[in-house]
Design a protein around this nucleic acid. Sequence first.
DNA 1: GGGATTTAAGGCAGTGAAAG
DNA 2: CTTTCACTGCCTTAAATCCC
Length: 332
Amino acid sequence: MVTIADVARHAGVAPSTVSYVLTGRRSISSATKARVEASVRALGYHPHAGARSLASNRANVLALVLPVREGMNMPVLMQFVVAVANAARRHEHDVLLVTADQGAAGLRRVAGSAQVDGLLVMDVEMHDERVPVLRELDRPSVLIGFPADAAGLTCVDLDFAEAGARCVDHLADLGHASVALVGAPRAVYQRDTGFAHRTMAGFSAAAMRRGVASTTLPTEPDHESVRVAITGLLDRHPAVTGLVVHNEAALPSVVEVLRTLGRKVPDDVAVVAICPDDLAERMTPPLTSVAVPAEQLGHHAVALLMAKLDRTPTPPLTLLPPRLTERASTAR
DNA sequence: GGGATTTAAGGCAGTGAAAG
DNA sequence: CTTTCACTGCCTTAAATCCC
């Protein structure tokens, strides 16, 4: 294995000089720097990660804590994972994906063993058992999502309450007087997951405010469940002419079921989705949607965590404002 | 004097030898 | 057999030194 000593010998300098060239923490003459860099390339040197973290007390690894649970939509989660990994890489960090460990034990393990410098935590519940642990840990953390009590934490999220409200406002503006929220699977609400809870609250409050009749139904994503749910909904509430769908996996089935029921979109039923833009654009017809900006959220979360690692003060809660894009599913 | 470079210490976990 | 202790690994960093 090529070590920093080999590079130093090859370049005719001290090991510490190589280190300073590599980290850029001290000024090095351009001639020396060029020689060292040439030696690094010539020998194919890569710093030994273990030794580096031993000496610097930095692992250059971030934990992405993402318990994979019932009712989660993998394609959307992957957008977050990719965004986080790419952003971390731009800050010279790698990502340790923590999925298997349930709750607090997993946090303690990766933080306590100095495997990671900081933690990004996803799928945050309103009363999340991991939150008190995060406050205790000696490693900084950023939550994508936020619990009921976010005191002392750094959180970033889409403003899902406002997202739910924007959907209702859009439908109300178009003259719809009765709307329904086709929500996440029941298990997601039972866990009291923050984003699902807030979307529903924002949806209901806006409907009340606008004097629009509203109903909500948690929905399992498989086609048959969607068929039963939508059919039942339109039977019980024949006046419903607007659907807000906050369930990416169910989205194709919702559109398909409406078609088989002979309900034209948007003429008979208007549909607004809360989902990533690419998904809304791919549907037939393309759906009006409030974007779930996975890329942006992931980047933002990493930037906040980097700031905390540098001991730069960070805002406790960053809520991205929802952006609604009109497409064919709600045309006037 | 001041920028460039080197020296030396030390970070943590594990290993093997010596001492008990 | 258990305990102790020096030492290794690879790197970073504060302090010391070099040299124009």
